[in-house]
Design a protein around this nucleic acid. Sequence first.
DNA 1: CGTTGTCTTCAGAAATTTGTGAAGTTAAGG
DNA 2: CCTTAACTTCACAAATTTCTGAAGACAACG
Lengths: 168, 168
Amino acid sequence: MTESAGAAGTGRDAEAVSRFVESFAAQLVEAGMQRMAARVFAALLASDSGAMTSAELGEQLQVSPAAVSGAVRYLAQVHMVSREREPGSRRERYRVHSDQWYEALTNRDAILKRWEQTLREGVDSLGATSPGGQRIAETLAFFEYLEGELTKLMDRWREHRDKTFGRG
Amino acid sequence: MTESAGAAGTGRDAEAVSRFVESFAAQLVEAGMQRMAARVFAALLASDSGAMTSAELGEQLQVSPAAVSGAVRYLAQVHMVSREREPGSRRERYRVHSDQWYEALTNRDAILKRWEQTLREGVDSLGATSPGGQRIAETLAFFEYLEGELTKLMDRWREHRDKTFGRG
DNA sequence: CGTTGTCTTCAGAAATTTGTGAAGTTAAGG
DNA sequence: CCTTAACTTCACAAATTTCTGAAGACAACG
């Protein structure tokens, strides 16, 4: 864990940070996230304070302000970062929360709801007694079950986390 | 639920089926799945027997055999369909199982494992005591917790499903 | 062992997505 | 108010993804 050239005095090994950011982002991309959004999110996750300005992000990731803007808009929409206006400044900071994954999963819940609606319509229009309708109904039942269980699971996680990491 | 022209005698409203297939596929695409894979999967889900041949899929979705081939290869890789050789024929059938989502989630588990590995490396190289390292460690803890809970959740689902739908 | 039906692979065309530079908008600070 | 820093929007270029037609491979059937 020695510091690479260029990171002198920062207390952080910029190269190690970048390596982590790029590998984790790549995996998020593989899972379906937009590339730039994934890179921004990973950079925030690895940052000291959990928050960075547009300029900082642009410099670390070597991209234009426009790219940062687009990525941040997406991440805010899916509740994976929040925006903060620095009081007495025209800069904005983008932040990951410690209960970030709680937020993200909660949002996932809304998506599940839309899926369920589509599945319900499918059951209706194919007929609940047709073989296809039955298969879709079982899928629907699974999602409904999952939705309820995920809520409980997240509650348990928060409790578990507080015990493990202290109120954070 | 009247039959549209062209579906006469099939006992299925082709237009209604297609409408469901395309809406559900669109939502899967939104969630990150490849378009053609999503359409094939939705078509199988809505089919009578839960299985279709390449030719049937090509005709219903109006795409080439090559496109079906690519989609099916992907779906098989992520365990969302299985392939069956029809005995005494050179045709293959592609099938969705009733415990399809169990399979899919189990596969998701493998992805989680890879994420965890990357996060562990991140904690190591940033240092477990650095602020960024701590944040990543908390993310790692969440995924580890999630992994264990998902396993239990899926077991409970199977039990719940058997009670609700009878042994499937 | 040749014929034929079925699936796969591959090169390339088409469509989509992604990121940039430049112009536009907003609000802080003088 | 005027200036200016910071973010956003937009049109376009580049890269990537997706699908097709054609050729190839494989296995069933005669």
